[in-house]
Design a protein around this nucleic acid. Structure first.
Lengths: 201, 201
DNA sequence: AGCGTTCTGGACCGATCGGAACTTAAAGCG
DNA sequence: CGCTTTAAGTTCCGATCGGTCCAGAACGCT
């Protein structure tokens, strides 16, 4: 973890490591892991390969850190949504947040967790697995939140938390693909409206 | 279009062009356009690069032909679904078909049209555009079918065909991602059940 | 000043990328 | 039999891939 030590010993870093990571995240977001070369990355980050390797390790570790930054930044709506008071408002906040992030101006369309490494290749396996785990974790957290909602009484005891979580996650993933397909935010919000019609009363 | 001429003039082709295309489709399906190298392709196809170039042109054209084969093969459920008698049964057949194809044993999980080239890179732009067009076309055909259903009276005049089509497409894309995520067919079928609860009465 | 430590820029690495070229092989036809 | 045509197999191409190495530069510390 030498990348975050700010107590300078030796020559100080000449670039902003957060800014560089932000740029790397944007490139991975737009082009995916396989489609992004070191030249793409260092070009966008404004640093040389040696600086990148010294600060982040290698391409694979840089991707992992970019995903972490994505989770805490553009995808932070997911964690925030879990704090909504009812299961239904959790689901709605989750989907609305997905719409906003996948269509945010100045950012690539779509979702890094979906288009970062959906296909599985030899060299993208670590990146692929990272994203599979993250997507599944998100579903599990949603399921646990829905289970709590049943205990709290704002969701019917007949409801299946796992099934609802998988449905919401599916809708969110579909929205990410549609955003990459060029759909506008208002069209995606209509999709959220429609999906929520399936929500148990 | 010299690839399909079977009237032999000159040395006859020693491999089955359909079989080779099938293999190429499978590789693109699993690894995506960017993640697939010519070595991957020719290795799976059992031919050399020169044979591939002579028969299919280049990697990009091979991808296009693989997508066409996918559309007529594994994804043919989409066209068949449109012939269902009612809008609702069209939607259900479309989604059930998606579940079956994205979880078919012996084939890669997920959907070629989604994971073939979701991210946009310099070299994948043609493949990416091909898939964007195809996905949007599928939505348009669904929308037209729903519009016809309104005229035929099996769908309410209050329904919005475009909105419904986008919702069904979104669910189908989400299912493709979930399949790539490792969900089982029965879990995906539950998602279809849930999504159809949003269908207008 | 000298030293240890860390960062920078650029040269360099073997491997692989998509693709072209060239030779050899197998067919029909006169 | 040549002659033409097309496919197969091999070699080679320039470019790029992810990654390493090294000399020099910029700091804190003594």
């Amino acid at each position: 973890m030498s990348g975050s030590r700010s107590t300078a010993f030796g020559r100080p870093r000449e670039f902003d490591i957060d800014e560089a990571l932000e740029r790397a995240m944007q490139v991975f977001w737009a082009r995916g892991y396989d489609g992004t070369s070191l030249t793409d990355l260092t070009g966008a980050m404004g640093i040389t390969k040696s600086s990148m390797y010294a600060a982040f390790g290698n391409k694979e570790q840089l991707f992992r850190k970019a995903v972490e930054r994505y989770a805490e930044g553009p995808a932070s709506y997911a964690t925030r949504a879990l704090r909504e008071p009812t299961a239904r408002s959790v689901a709605e906040a989750f989907l609305r947040g997905g719409v906003r992030t996948t269509t945010s101006p100045g950012c690539p369309t779509g979702c890094l967790s979906v288009q970062g490494a959906l296909a599985l290749t030899e060299q993208s396996r670590p990146a692929h697995d990272t994203l599979v785990d993250w997507r599944n974790d998100a579903g599990v957290r949603l399921e646990e939140r829905f289970r709590r909602a049943i205990e709290e009484g704002d969701l019917s005891r007949d409801a299946d938390p796992g099934r609802l979580a998988r449905f919401i996650m599916t809708t969110a993933f579909g929205i990410a693909v549609q955003a990459a397909n060029g759909l506008r935010a208002d069209e995606l919000d209509e999709i959220v409206d429609t999906a929520l019609l399936a929500w148990p009363t």
